[in-house]
Every structure is written in structure tokens, then in C-alpha cells.
Design a binder for these strands. Structure first.
Lengths: 354, 354
DNA sequence: CTGAAAGCGCTTACAG
DNA sequence: CTGAAAGCGCTTACAG
């Protein structure tokens, strides 16, 4: 039983009240030129009187455009950076008149992925953002994937570059190199690394950057001073212990997340190691906490919202391209899909300023 | 120019190929009883052959149900807890067959709120989740708000209880009381508090809990030892300095977020205060970092995903109620919309175990 | 500038 | 068990 009050006000109701055709009402709500000012005014008043809100659903069905973007994530909101990325996307989407539809992927078999794609296609999203961290085998299908078989454009965030698929990502290899070079510039020569899970592209890239810097400095033996963590603090502490077993003279460590670096600082404090006198520590992320760690943590900043916004602009460009629509102002010009981390130096490498 | 390949396969195409009516195809995809096994089989094969995916849009338009829930947030994904809450919602929504449509509110005038409601109504969401932190005046409209004027049910997360609006929230007042009682149980008698922004309901409730515990202990004078922070670490440090000006003999502080507590620990370390010997510190959140702070932080855990899931179940109950539909299994029984924090005790109040 | 008709891709009574 | 018709609320050519 639907009460009369719940009855939706439609375009037809407005047309009847205004004494015009539905077509004319449609012209008014779509800001078409071909309406006399008086007619327009009258229609607008009727819209107000009735409290008419056009149904986006009906419009989507007839135009074939949903102004909705699908966002696929994989457990990521548990990480601050992913939350921040999502916030950046929501804001940018809002600015450009798009809504975001979220879908969380918990497993990565072909079935689950197909189900996700079906979900997005059923809801006719205009574009797709793959925003999960790149997890081992879960992304192999992307390698063979021809995005043109999809009815809508798709873009991948913070994953490895692939032939046909647009990607927006940080240059994590460069970041690893820069962090390591900083440690080298301090005169450190026994530089270890605690990585994120090697199933992650981001983690692997940073390892490569670290190795490149070591090779360039003529210290290939340091590549042995390696420990694989899981992004979380506990593995930072374990990593430090293990690295010192491998190399008792370890004098610096590049840690692939600020959270794990916290674990390193904690363990160092526990066993009485001085940071940075005994061991210099640099992280990556620039978490809000890092400035207040003991000692304050050197790290690398990433502008996550910028990455999110860049991804959205690029995706909307692709959508317009495919449909032959003009680009909206906010994404008129092409931009570089590669973003860069920047060094933030604090006491954990520099020591106390005097 | 749309290529033939892009032409959507519709129910009518399937019907033609299978030699049945659209109606029959509809029955098959909706698992209706009244189809002979042979017909069903033939239709299913045609669906497969053509790769038919029903349009959720068209279905939504004719049924009036979108199986989409609107989530309104306010800058919140910048906080880990909000990201985790969103993750909980996405997962629960998925389990129950709903999608989530996100909208970020950046200002709180009546216009912005109306625009948000319009957006949600245009897209015909089945229900609305107000998941922004409760910010001062931004929520006054909720006080006078009669949710029955909305075409869909709405639910508010982690905000103050209101007459007609369903709310799912932690008992933050209780949490403040319990944290303070813990400090009292250690024999502390000069117990300060660093709060979150007083524009936030959550922050105010915790202040009240702290005050209640002080009154019950006969220590009302401690209510003067108060500093308003902003959730971020820097205000923790500033708060500690200020509280010690007000009360040089301060021997404990209850801090309204683990992030601010980190600032307290940092400042204490800087000025040589011993934690907990000189000052016991307890936070609230149980952030992943807290266990690895120096010293490890006593705090209160909140099961944010549980709150998110509870909110979703309740909202879907309300949706079914309004439409006279039966409850889905996952939300068949009513549940308590009040959640509770739990103490997690570590060295910052207990000291080193021997 | 304005309107009548057909269509977007489904579902919902109503018949048979 | 199966189908023809009307409808969900818009927009898109096509006329006038």
C-alpha cells in the first residue's frame, strides 16, 4: 500500500499543471535554448510548486549515460591512504557531476571478477576505477585484458603499467631510489630494507629502487639485508632484528611504510639502539603520526588525493572520447599519469638539530 | 557512432532467440516458479549464448527499488576509523545485495543539505546513511527533521540520539567514564582530559563521561584540567603543556584519540616526563600504531566494522518495513543500536610488567 | 518555439 | 504454464 503522499511527482504532472507538453518541461530542466522566457518561467514555478525532482534513473535509461563511476576496492579502506584516495575521488567526482558506486572485492578468482564486472555493467556505470592494491595473482587477468571489450573505459590506480590499460600511479621505484640515496648521502654503507608484501607491485617497485641505488653506489652486497614485511608495525620490529642478524653492522634501513617504521623505532628503543646515531631510519607515506614518533620519522610524502583526482579526470576524458562528447573543462588537457613522492627529512635520519 | 558490437543485448533479444515472450524471459531471470524446466533451460542457454545481462536501471525504474543505499560523509575518509566504517558498510551491503552510492558533504548550509537529498532522491536510493562525524551546527537540522517526510528511511551513525531518527552509535559517554575510572583505580587523583573538537558529539560525550567519573570519585576540581584538541597529534602535545600549567601535579590524562595521545607521549619524552610513573596516559581508538608507541598506549577499542554492519542491517529492516517486504535473513531480528568500547591496557598506564 | 509519438529495457497485473 | 498490453519517467528525432 503506497500512500498518495509517496506518489512520485513526474514530468507529466508538471506538464499538465503548466499546460505544456512533457517535451517542453524536459527542455526546461535540461536548459535547452528553445523555450520562451515566459514558458520557462511558468514551468519553473510549477516545478517548485509540485516539488518536482527529475528521476535520474529514467534519464539514465533513455540517455544511456549514468554519470556514475564504479570503484572497485580490495580491503583497502583499512589503510588510511586508501581512505584518503577514496575521499579524493568522491570530491573530484562531485565536482564533475558524477556519483561513485563502490564495490569491494574479497576474492580474486575469475568468477568473482566477472561478477563484479556484471554488477557494474548491469548498473551501467560510465567508467570503472580499479583501486585495489595490486595483489599477486589477482591482477594477472589484467595482463591479458583488452579494455576495449568492456562497454565502458577502465582505469587502474597505483598498479603496474600495462599495454592497453590506462594507469595512474606513483613512481615507487624512483621513490625507493631517492630514499636510499638519502641514506647514502649521510655516509651510511650498510643499508637494509624492510619491504611490504612482495605480492604487491608497490612493494616490489620500492625494492627495485633500493637495489638500483645500492648498485649505483657500488654496494651490491647490501641487497642481502632484506626482510619482507606486511605493512604493519609488528613486522618492522621483526625486520630490524632479522636484518641485524644478517648484518650486525647495519647502519641504516629504508622501510616501505611509516607503520612498519614505527615498529622499527619501537624495537630500537626496546633494545637500546640509538636512532639515527646507530641506525638511520626512513619510511614512506608521511602518515600524520610520523612527525610525532620518537624520534620524528624521515619519510616520503605522497599526494594521494592528487592521484585520485588525476585518475578521475583521466577516466572522464576516456568516457568522453569513446562517446565523442567534448571534454568538460576540468579535464580538458592531458596530464602526466605518473606521480612522485617527495622527501621529508626529520630526526630519524638527520639527528637533533642544534 | 555506436558500433554494432556495443549494442546492448536486451531481454527482447533473448525472447526472440528462444521463441518465447519477454515475460517468460523475465520469469526465468527472476527465478519465478511458473516456467517448465525445458523452457527455463532453453531460455538460460539463449541468455548464455547472447551474453545477456539484465539492465539494473530498467529494473529499478519499473520496480521502484534500486537496491542502492546512499552514504553521506563529511571529510571523514581522512580518518582511519571512517575508512574502516565505510569498508564495513561496503561489505555488509554486498552480502545483502545492495550497492553503496557515496556523496561527500563539504558544507552544511540548508542548500547543500537539500542538494544532497535531491541527489539521493533523483537516484532513488532505497535508504540513506548519514555517516559524517557530527559537526556543530551542521546537524541542527536533524533535530527538527521528520524522517517520514523523506521518501526513504534514513539512519544516522555515531551521532546523538534523536526522537524520530534511528541512530547507531557507540556509548562514548560510558567510554569516557570507564577510561577515567581506570586511571582512578591506579590511584591517580589529578586527572586531566584532552578532548576532540567540542563541536563533535563524540568528543562532548567523552568529556561528560570523564566528568561523571570525577564527580563520582569526589574530585570535581579535576574538571578544570581540560584542553580542547582537534584529534591530531600536535594538539596532544600542546594539551599536555597547558594541563601542566593549570595543574603542575597532574598525574594522569585521558586523551580522546590515540593520535592526540601520540602527541602527548612525544611531548612527554621531549621534556623528560616518565610515562606512566609521572603521568599515566590513556587514549581511545586502539589504532594499529598504539601498541607500538613508546611506551605502548593504553586505550579503548572500538569495533567500527560492527557499528557499520549494525547500521546497514537496521536500515534495511526499515526499508523492508516501509514497503511491507519480509526481512532478509541477515537482519531478521532487532538488535541493540548502542555499541561499547573496551579497555585495552598497556604500559602507558600499567608500566612495565616484571 | 512547441508537441505527438516512439523508445530506453525491464516488470506488473490481467488473460488465456 | 505462457503471452499481449500497459507502464515506470524520462529523452530523442521528427514535424509543425
Amino acid at each position: 500500500m503506497v500512500s498518495m503522499a509517496d506518489k512520485r511527482v513526474t514530468l507529466a504532472d508538471v506538464a499538465k499543471l503548466a499546460g505544456v507538453s512533457k517535451q517542453t518541461v524536459s527542455r526546461v530542466i535540461n536548459d535547452s535554448e528553445h523555450v520562451t522566457p515566459e514558458t520557462r518561467e511558468r514551468v519553473l514555478q510549477c516545478i517548485n510548486v509540485l516539488g518536482f525532482r527529475p528521476s535520474a534513473l529514467a534519464r539514465q535509461l533513455s540517455t544511456g549515460r549514468s554519470y556514475t563511476l564504479g570503484v572497485v576496492s580490495c580491503g583497502g579502506f583499512g589503510y588510511l591512504a586508501t581512505g584518503v584516495a577514496y575521499l579524493g575521488m568522491v570530491r573530484q567526482a562531485d565536482k564533475m557531476g558524477y556519483a561513485l558506486l563502490s564495490k569491494e572485492l574479497t576474492e580474486f578468482g575469475p568468477n568473482a571478477i566477472q561478477a563484479m564486472l556484471d554488477f557494474m555493467m548491469e548498473r551501467q556505470v560510465d567508467g570503472l576505477i580499479w583501486a585495489g592494491p595490486e595483489i599477486g595473482d589477482s591482477h594477472v587477468w589484467l595482463n591479458e585484458f583488452d579494455p576495449s571489450t568492456l562497454p565502458m573505459p577502465m582505469i587502474v590506480v597505483n598498479a603496474s603499467q600495462r599495454g592497453l590499460i590506462d594507469t595512474v600511479a606513483f613512481d615507487n621505484c624512483e621513490s625507493g631510489r631517492i630514499a636510499t640515496e638519502h641514506l647514502l648521502s649521510l655516509g651510511r654503507r650498510k643499508i637494509g630494507h624492510i619491504s611490504g608484501p612482495m605480492s604487491r607491485w608497490v612493494a616490489r617497485q620500492r625494492v627495485i629502487g633500493w637495489q638500483q641505488a645500492l648498485d649505483a653506489a657500488g654496494l651490491p652486497e647490501c641487497k642481502e639485508y632484506f626482510f619482507e614485511g606486511d605493512w604493519e608495525p609488528a613486522t618492522g620490529g621483526r625486520g630490524l632484528r632479522r636484518l641485524r642478524e644478517i648484518c650486525p653492522e647495519l647502519d641504516a634501513v629504508f622501510v616501505s611504510s611509516d607503520r612498519m617504521a614505527l615498529g622499527v623505532l619501537h624495537e630500537a628503543h626496546r633494545i637500546g639502539l640509538r636512532i639515527p646515531e646507530d641506525i638511520a631510519v626512513i619510511g614512506i607515506d608521511n602518515a600524520p603520526e610520523s612527525e610525532f614518533m620518537i624520534p620524528p620519522l624521515s619519510t616520503m610524502t605522497q599526494d594521494t588525493p592528487a592521484m585520485a583526482e588525476c585518475a578521475l579526470r583521466l577516466l572522464i576524458r576516456r568516457i568522453c572520447e569513446r562517446r565523442g562528447d567534448p571534454y568538460p573543462p576540468l579535464c580538458a588537457e592531458a596530464e602526466d599519469p605518473i606521480l612522485h613522492h617527495e622527501l621529508v627529512l626529520r630526526e630519524s635520519t638527520l639527528g637533533v638539530k642544534r
